[in-house]
């Protein structure tokens, strides 16, 4: 049915998932830094973080990705020329994951900011009053509760980012969508391969939703559930 291309496409899932997970790590780093900057007393940090989230969320991710990919190549060429090295080509994996991480970091900034604000201040004060160190307060009080508040927004951002990984095929990364294109060209069965890619994406989305709702339940232990109806 897939003319023997099934293993190749499924192997592309590995590329897609590694792009998604590296991007997620980058996005979490940018998101945490952005949230902390937005909540900081310094107007400069707040201004930088606000400009970051506003501008990034106003641009299409494909534009940013192409900009980073081509712009990175120009910068790299200049560096290579000034150092007298041989020509280096920009790595599409690095360009793709950095862009996706940077873009979704802006969305996660808002998620994390809201999650930190949702923790009652009194708890943090109480922690200090009991003699806990700053680190103990962070790791035992702020972070575990922040995770619970951040999970719904985080789930949503992860699902959107997972789908956005399809864009890396445009800058030449050998992910599922790119491989589906190659297999289509070889077999003249584009519907079969793009539909297969869609089905695999749908499966990953479904698994993600199930796993993350399990995580949410775990982090909501000890919190009274409101009984609906």
């Amino acid at each position: 049915m897939f003319y023997g291309y099934l293993p190749m496409i499924v192997a592309g899932l590995g590329v897609t998932l590694s792009v998604a997970s590296v991007s997620l790590l980058v996005a979490c780093a940018f998101g945490l830094a952005g949230a902390i900057a937005k909540l900081s007393p310094s107007p400069l940090l707040r201004g930088v973080a606000t400009a970051y989230t506003t501008v990034i969320r106003s641009l299409p991710d494909l534009l940013l990705m192409l900009g980073v990919f081509y712009g990175g190549q120009i910068l790299l060429n200049r560096l290579v020329d000034s150092q007298g090295w041989d020509y280096i080509e920009i790595d599409p994996f690095a360009a793709g994951t950095l862009t996706l991480g940077f873009v979704f970091g802006a969305y996660l900034t808002e998620t994390f900011r809201g999650a930190i604000l949702a923790i009652p201040r009194g708890q943090i004060e109480a922690g200090h009053a009991c003699g806990l160190t700053r680190w103990q307060v962070l790791s035992n009080i702020t972070l575990p509760q922040m995770i619970r508040h951040a999970i719904p927004g985080f789930t949503n951002n992860w699902l959107v980012m997972l789908k956005a990984t399809a864009l890396v095929s445009i800058i030449g990364l050998d992910d599922m969508v790119h491989r589906a294109g190659l297999a289509s060209a070889a077999t003249r069965a584009p519907f079969t391969f793009y539909a297969l890619t869609g089905v695999i994406y749908l499966a990953v989305t479904t698994v993600s939703i199930l796993v993350l709702s399990g995580v949410e339940r775990r982090f909501s232990r000890g919190v009274r559930r409101e009984v609906v109806r």
Binding site: K163, A166, V177, T192, Y194, Y201, L202
Partner: peptide, 22 residues
């Protein structure tokens, strides 16, 4: 659920490149 669980790029390719297969 199907539309929201798959990338728009893939949906576009299924329609643009995929339909002529038939």
């Amino acid at each position: 659920y199907v539309i929201r669980g798959t990338p728009l790029l893939v949906q576009l390719f299924i329609i643009y490149y995929g339909l002529p297969q038939f």
